[in-house]
Structures are given as C-alpha cells and as structure tokens.
Nucleic acid binder design. Structure first.
Lengths: 252, 252
DNA sequence: AAGTGGTCTAGACCACAGC
DNA sequence: CTGTGGTCTAGACCACTTG
C-alpha cells in the first residue's frame, strides 16, 4: 500500500472526497463535466458499481448532477431572494403591485398550472382556520416557473363562505391579488405567521419542481390574520431550496 | 405479467413505492423495522443490490434510516419551534433571560463545544461587517445538544475592536448574553436580518450534527444592526432540519 | 455509431447488533 | 452465533445524448 496510514474509509468515499476537493478548489467549475464511470474505473482500478457509488455521493450532496447519456456535471446555483416581511408590507399590495415582482431581478417568472376549486378542508388547515374538517374551502393552486425552471408550488386555502362571489374564486384575482380582495370583503390581513421547514422532496414534488437529486425543498406555511386574530388564509408553499434564499428583517 | 399496464418504472422504485405507501398508511409506525434486504429479495424475487436500492430510496427521502447490524427503521420526528422574531424581542434579553429558554419545551438543551477565538475575518463576513478581509474579529462557536441529539451549530463574528475587554470574549457572556453586553458597550442591537437557505450537509456537518442520511440542513445567517444601520454581529447557524420549525410572525 | 449513465444479476467478504 | 446492513467485484442489457 503506497499511501500508508489513513486508509480506513471505503474506496468510494476516497474517490468522492478527491472529486469534491477538486470541485471546491475550483479545478472543476460549475457546469463542467466530471470524470465518468469509465474514467474512474480506469483511473482508480475499481469496479463499475464502486465508481458509480462515488459519483452518487456527490449527487446526493447536491454538488453534482447526472444527465443521462451525457455525463455527471458540477451544479451551479443562482438563488432568488425572497423578502418575507417586506413583500407583505401593505404598500406592496395596497396599490395593485404584484407581490412577486420584487424578487425576480430581470429574469422571467411565469405562473403556471393555476387551478381554483372548492374542496373539503384538510384537518390541519381546518384547525388553523377555525372550522371543522371537511367544511368547504376555496383552494387556489399555482406553480411559478423561472426561466423554464419551476421554483415554487403554492396552495392557498380560504373559507368558501368568506370569498364566495369575489374575484378570489376566479383565476385572475385582479390588481393587488387575494389580499386586496380580502380587504374589500372586510377581512384585511393585518398580521402574518410564516412557518418554515425543510426536508427531502416526495417523488411528486421532485417531478413538479424538476429537482435534481440531492436537492431538498423548503416548506413555508403562511397564515394571514385579519382583525381579532381571525385566520383568513392558509398558504402552503413548496420551494426548490436551490432557487431560494429567504430573508426576514425586523426590529428588536 | 399479471399486472398489465403501468410497468414502466424500475423494480426498485416499485418496491420503494410499496414500502412508502405502507408507511404513510400507518402499517409501519415511526420506529418500526421495515422488511430487510433478505426479506425483499425473497418476497419480490430480486437481487440483493436491487432490494438495497429500494431501501436506499426511502433513506435518501429521509423517511427511513438504517442501523448497521440491526435493520432499516421508520424515522420519527419531533421538531422544535424556533420563534425568530419573538426570541429577539428586547424583553427577552433585556432582563437577563437566555434566548434559548423559550423553545425547549421541557426537553434538556445542553450547550457544547464552546470556543472563543480571535481570527481574521472571512471575506463574506468582512463585507457585511464593513471591514477588510482579514481584519481581527472575535469568533464565538458553540453547539446545542437536545436530549443527546446535536441540533444546532452556531458561529458568531464580532468586531474585535468593539468587544475587546468585555465579557463577550469570555466563554460565559453573563446574563442576557452577547446582546446585553453589546448594549452596555453602546452598540445595542435594534434591527436584525435573518437569511435562510437549505441544502444537503457536508460530511463534516453530518458528523457534527449526527445526521442520518436524507436529512438536509437549514442555514440561518443573522446580522444584528445597531443604530445607523451599523452591523455589529454576524451569526451563522447550521440546523438539523429534522429538529426545527422556524417561525416568523409580523404585522402587515 | 459510440459513449454515457440507469438498471439488474449473482456472487463475495466484512463489521456490527442482538440473542 | 446468526442475521443484519456496508462494501466490492465482474459481468449484462437498456435508453439516452452527442458527434
């Protein structure tokens, strides 16, 4: 054994480490192709499955991604900044601005797969809205696509009895969006709570967001409150974690 | 083929799907042992590596975790709630309360691996603090362990010239922590910004937080500002995503 | 057409957990 | 000790991308 000493880690880990170092030191740039399975087999004298396992490590770390028939490549990132408090300031939606305009920075954001239906409230939503499970709610779903890459899926739940007949039940909610309409209905949102979690995506989520392996999702559950602490909307969002930085700024 | 029609997915996916359904329908509860590699080989008539791949899917989704020599088990979760704005309200630290006391909910939280050193500022920190890269900063690191499970690693950076001689350079910062001391030094934090990202952990992070495979980390970078928008602290935190729900509540 | 990654098989030896 | 998952080999066929 030429390299005496530290040799207690498996071969595939040593290969993965070597590639990771090469990436972090800049020898491979974002978008570059890494040595393929055949290269690693030849270069390290190892079986196919072992070379494959090494590349699998980098993919599950989110550092590299494979493209069928082409190779394994170093991933590149260019996240959006989502300003959680500023975006919901009244000046944003009070005058008919789209809340989404603020963080796109000259890239094109398309809204996709819009659907508006009336359904029975799921248990967790019913609890927050203060109704019974199965009570009718208006469910608004939509997907946001940035430069052909889906980055966010959002589903809003609102009390059907509250929004019946308003533009909220239409695909186009009009200037200022849902919150401007709620204000007109006498349920102006004055307080918000956002809860954030992160986990690996389900198969469905990975498909809808076109996520490459090793990419977690961030989940934001926002509740909008009108006066008296009355919850008027629950919005569940699923974000591609590689596409977003969330920002919250506030005073002590 | 008995089940005609939809048979275009690989065997390992079908096996994984079947197990996932069984978990989500409650047939396997958190903590339960799943069928092992041998069971799947026998039950589905597949090779070892295929059964293994199926179990690997569930692990990389964070749904299951393997224990060497024992089996593969359904994971269980019990996250903390971290109230991002409330925790930094002045009433919390103004009277000597530990900011961490608010969210432990009767479980025991231990602070671990405390270190206080003086180093040259890394580039990204220097930029935020408004100094030159390499300028001396006080670096405070610590790890938080909840019921024997590490959940958070935090590293604070403060201008060395600002905090020299204060308790901030000691392991024990005294009642009210860093922010109370900064206030005494005439740099009371009045504004905060928190930036949140998520990604898969590095090997180091996975070790320090004892993460099981398929668990992302959440990164919080908090900047504390004194009067005139002067940045006085940068705090980089790495959280086990399975242990935390972040919460931000604010008015429109 | 050649090369790539994706799936799959049928073996092997090892370290570790639990009985 | 027996069974478990972790590593590793040496083949195979396939679908896809690219030149």
């Amino acid at each position: 054994m030429s390299t005496e000493g530290a040799k207690r880690q498996p071969k595939y880990q040593r290969i993965a480490d070597e590639l990771r170092d090469a990436i972090q030191s800049g020898r491979y740039q974002p978008g570059d192709r890494l040595p393929g399975e055949n290269d690693l087999m030849a270069g390290h004298g190892v079986a196919r499955m072992t070379a494959r396992q090494a590349l699998g490590v980098l993919q599950s770390e989110g550092i590299a991604e494979s493209r069928k028939g082409a190779g394994v490549f170093v991933r590149s990132f260019r996240p959006l900044r989502r300003q959680g408090i500023k975006r919901l300031a009244q000046s944003q939606w009070g005058e008919g601005r789209s809340v989404w305009a603020v963080d796109t920075e000259d890239r094109t954001l398309v809204v996709d797969q819009v659907s508006v239906t009336e359904q029975g409230a799921p248990e967790r939503v019913a609890r927050v809205l203060g109704v019974e499970q199965g009570d009718p709610v208006c469910v608004r779903s939509r997907r946001f696509v940035l430069d052909d890459k889906p980055v966010l899926i959002a589903t809003s739940y609102l009390l059907a009895s509250l929004v019946a007949g308003s533009a909220i039940t239409q695909e186009d909610t009009g200037p200022g969006g849902i919150y401007a309409r709620l204000a007109e209905l006498g349920s102006k949102p004055v307080h918000f709570r956002e809860e954030i979690r992160s986990r690996m995506p389900s198969t469905d989520e990975a498909e809808q967001l076109k996520l490459s392996t090793g990419t977690p999702v961030m989940l934001i559950c926002r509740t909008a409150f009108a006066d008296e602490g009355r919850a008027v909307e629950v919005n569940e969002m699923t974000l591609d974690s590689a596409s977003y930085i969330l920002e919250y700024a506030f005073d002590a």
